[in-house]
Design a protein around this nucleic acid. Structure first.
Lengths: 208, 208
DNA sequence: CATTAAGTGTCTATTTGATAGACACTTTAG
DNA sequence: CTAAAGTGTCTATCAAATAGACACTTAATG
């Protein structure tokens, strides 16, 4: 059993970050499938040997890139808000902002969803992650408490959100983050009454 | 006299490139003057000691960044074209393309001209470099060989070019490189008859 | 103001991440 | 079918990066 080093040194993280960055650039430039390990180390200015110290192959790097970014998105989703705090759609501003701002900060990566021959899995896993966030961290209430299948409702809204994001990205982030959030809120107001955050472990009870 | 190491190892270049990249990011984020060395090494994930192995201070890094990019622009200007080759404005496509494509490839850097508290000198040295390129590498002919002061004419066209670039950048590269070049050519056609490239050392004589 | 905190510039000993380069294959173009 | 390019693995070696301390110099802030 090989010794799996769990904690990475800052330098290891740095090198891996550079390799990931190089991969993103190259995918945009020539498509995922024609990117070689040589290309990657060439772009990132490392020795080919170094690549294999960190990753088995291109696929592993791609997976690491995708999972780490989506992990980051999940983490960004549920942070500075009180568990169980109820938020009305008119106040949806701040919570959505975490997601949006994460995507915007890492737009270099998320632009990959506009490419054809791109990071494997990104077109399925990105929207799935949004759905997961909706499922695990939010409790929605429909307008007038109209009874619906909540699983379906969340899927519906999550993918709707994804569609807007997709459009925002492919427009080259034409709207500012704030403008974009306002759009989302306007749309939400048509069918969502309130949103509750789910705390770690306990489902928040309603306040007010 | 200290031993000035003239040739840098690939790793040194890589590290310096990362530090430069970090500086660009930070200028956009918080403005040049409030960027500290700590910020830079934090962003680039290096140790502060490492910074001082490569640069004396923030100013030196900034200077290196600016001069290296403008040097690259100059180099990009005069490469794959035969010295003395005459090019009519209708064919201006390819030559301009080198400049444009260099700027576009390094747009991350050139976007800095849109910032207020930005890289010192960029607002003066960037247009000056364009002018220098015009002066050293091109010979213009006016429409119908109308006699003009060529120094003034070059300055005029160089800064006109700069203005277009500025606008292109601040629009977020709305036009493609090709579309943008077409614009330039259209404008050039109004007062430039032909362009000749100046070879290294010898002024090319006309062909055809 | 005065005091604290943050940032600067410089130096060492140490380490560990990165490198060169070779080997045996495999895959891709022409 | 062959040549060229790419892959994956291993080793000895090097030098880039690190930690951490030191004396100072600005910025903040109560």
């Amino acid at each position: 059993m090989k010794n799996e080093q769990k904690t990475k040194s800052p330098q290891q993280n740095r090198t891996e970050a550079h390799l990931k960055f190089a991969l993103i650039e190259l995918i945009k430039e020539k498509g995922y499938h024609s990117v070689t390990v040589k290309d990657i180390v060439g772009q990132a200015a490392y020795n080919r040997s170094t690549f294999y110290i960190h990753y088995q192959d291109k696929i592993q790097l791609a997976e690491d890139l995708l999972t780490s970014m989506l992990k980051g998105l999940e983490d960004a989703a549920g942070e500075p808000y009180m568990p169980g705090q109820k938020v009305y759609t008119t106040m949806l501003n701040k919570p959505s902002f975490n997601l949006i701002s994460y995507i915007y900060r890492h737009r270099h990566f998320f632009e990959l969803i506009n490419y054809d021959d791109t990071l494997p899995g990104i077109h399925t896993q990105f929207p799935q992650t949004i759905l997961k966030i909706y499922q695990e961290k939010f409790i929605f209430e429909t307008i007038n408490h109209i009874p619906v299948n909540m699983d379906y409702f969340k899927r519906y809204t999550a993918y709707g959100f994804y569609g807007l994001i997709q459009n925002w990205i492919s427009s080259g982030f034409k709207e500012t983050q704030e403008e974009f959030i306002d759009q989302i809120i306007d749309l939400s107001k048509t069918h969502i009454y309130s949103v509750q955050y789910v705390g770690d472990g306990e489902t928040g009870s309603l306040s007010r």
